[in-house]
């Protein structure tokens, strides 16, 4: 079976496109990393792709806030293409900087509410491994039969906040930070690395085809990436998340 083509966007400063491409490749997809400048030139039709992915990095050097300029670019130069893809109910995933972009472009939470991703409660960048529990009451196909994921975070602006007076519906929480044994983090640092209320690590839109998350499941797709691999430990890889995405395609 021919692997299905996935569009991986690349903005100036994106650096986790390669990691994401490898995860998609392992999950059975055909990754295509395409710089936005090339997409602008030849107006490539995004309908050729079965899935849209926005990788992590420091797009536009985080100027004006992480993801803000890339979001503006999508809302202006690519508004129609993006909306068409989103409304077609095909899968979209935004990881870290990609999640920031989807939130700041108003694609997520996608229910009329307003959210943002802001500075970590610790006041600095965090690079550490975390445990993620999929939300059992979220019906999104991204999360079907998904076991807990153990993977790294690497971000300075990962704290997910809703606008004052708004609370994200529980069924839109995608993944939450937990202790290694699965018990809720309850805001405890560094189990919850950024202070997101309700330990929110990732969310979906109401239709469930779009997911955004701060951690990097694409950085635990081989056993040798596990921090305690030399101690004989393994488990918690993130490939299944991408397999779920491709199943929706």
């Amino acid at each position: 079976m021919t692997p299905k083509p996935v569009l991986i966007l690349h903005a100036p400063g994106t650096n986790r496109d390669g990691d994401l491409a490898e995860a998609i490749r392992l999950a059975g997809g055909a990754p295509n990393i395409v710089p936005l400048s090339r997409l602008r030139e030849n107006g490539k039709n995004w309908r050729d792709y079965v899935m849209l992915a926005l990788p992590g990095g420091f797009s536009y050097g985080d100027a004006l806030g992480a993801g803000r300029l890339w979001a503006l670019e999508l809302q202006t130069a690519f508004e129609d293409l993006l909306l068409a893809f989103v409304e077609s109910n095909r899968p979209v995933i935004g990881i870290c900087n990609g999640f920031q972009v989807l939130v700041k472009a108003g694609i997520l939470p996608g229910n009329g509410q307003t959210a943002t991703l802001t500075f970590n409660a610790s006041g600095h960048f965090e690079c550490r491994w975390v445990t993620l529990a999929p939300n059992k009451v979220n019906p999104s196909p991204w999360l079907t039969d998904l076991p807990p994921i153990f993977c790294p975070v690497a971000h300075g602006e990962g704290r997910f906040l809703m606008a004052e007076g708004q609370a994200l519906p529980t069924e839109q929480i995608g993944l939450a930070y937990t202790h290694p044994d699965g018990t809720t983090a309850d805001g405890v640092y560094p189990v919850n690395p950024n202070g997101s209320p309700r330990d929110i690590a990732g969310i979906t839109n109401p239709a469930g085809n779009i997911i955004g998350l701060m951690p990097h499941p694409e950085d635990h797709i081989y056993p040798h990436q596990h921090p305690n691999w030399t101690r004989g430990e393994s488990g918690g890889m993130g490939v299944k998340l991408f397999e779920n995405g491709l199943k929706m395609a």
């Binding site: 650096n15 986790r16 390669g18 990691d19 490898e22 600095h124 960048f125 965090e126 690079c127 550490r128 790294p152 690497a154 990097h216 694409e218 950085d219 797709i221 081989y222 040798h224 990436q225 921090p227 305690n228 691999w229 030399t230 101690r231």
Partner: peptide
């Protein structure tokens, strides 16, 4: 160490910080 991204590009087998 933790304010720098030592996981980018998914290549780090033995990390800067060791042990359980």
């Amino acid at each position: 160490i933790r304010v720098y991204d030592h996981e980018v590009r998914g290549s780090t087998v033995a990390k800067p910080l060791a042990g359980p």
